[in-house]
Design a protein around this nucleic acid. Sequence first.
DNA 1: TTGACAGTGCGACTAAGTCGCATTAATCTT
DNA 2: AAGATTAATGCGACTTAGTCGCACTGTCAA
Lengths: 139, 139
Amino acid sequence: MDQDPFFRTLRAGGHRLTQARMAVIAALRKASAPLSAAEILASCLAAGARIDRATAYRELEFLASSGIALPVRLEGRSLRYEISDRGHHHHAVCLKCENIQEVKADAALEAAETRVAKRVGFTVLRHAFELFGLCKKCR
Amino acid sequence: MDQDPFFRTLRAGGHRLTQARMAVIAALRKASAPLSAAEILASCLAAGARIDRATAYRELEFLASSGIALPVRLEGRSLRYEISDRGHHHHAVCLKCENIQEVKADAALEAAETRVAKRVGFTVLRHAFELFGLCKKCR
DNA sequence: TTGACAGTGCGACTAAGTCGCATTAATCTT
DNA sequence: AAGATTAATGCGACTTAGTCGCACTGTCAA
């Protein structure tokens, strides 16, 4: 536990390793796609942790501010979170099976973005790029 | 009124030109940035149309399904709509002044998207590309 | 082992959106 | 111009996602 980089970060920041916190981190780690607060709560409860809805929301917000969880807002869906140690990527959402697939970032795409931003005089702090359609299996 | 392309489309589809419908279309036309249902409702009421909240929501959904309104889902904000006759574009959201700016689509960007999608075997039906940061005035 | 206080549970609240159903009004027909 | 037809509306109750204040509790450093 003490060799876990996230746990070390938290302790270094003076934060406690509570049951709720560890349960939420575990739920995020276990997930293969971004999860909503409700799903994370369910996952924690299923794993035996007795945590409250409000705590789940607060914990996710806290983990996001600590850089451990990454908020993922995909259009039409409620806010989701994923664990932050998977590198920069985008998401492809299948409109049929509802699955969310990770898509590795593409250098040309990022370059195009930078150029577009410069053209309109906009300082980009963050961007969203998402695909909606049919995954390999569903098309 | 009868020469308005949207009105012609609606009539051709057997739909009625009701007060609410025309008020919502007028509100969308008047807007310079995507509006939320609440803002559209307010705009209609301010213009003297007495329409209900539920009607505003239903009308926007209907106009979207008719291709007259375009749903715009920007992360962290509620669903917005814009009029559909302005050509394909993306949005840049200023995190300081909250303004939403239109950004013309970029060919290189779209090309990169196509390539990325092909790589992961995904059939893209729709995509979202948004910038978040500081606009010219705010940076 | 205990004191301090970060974090929690509870419950009440808000915002955004949905839905069923009786009624109204836009359009068609004559 | 007066009905008849039925799309669209208003009302109100409901749902879902998320927030907040406050008293309590569990974590951890001393």
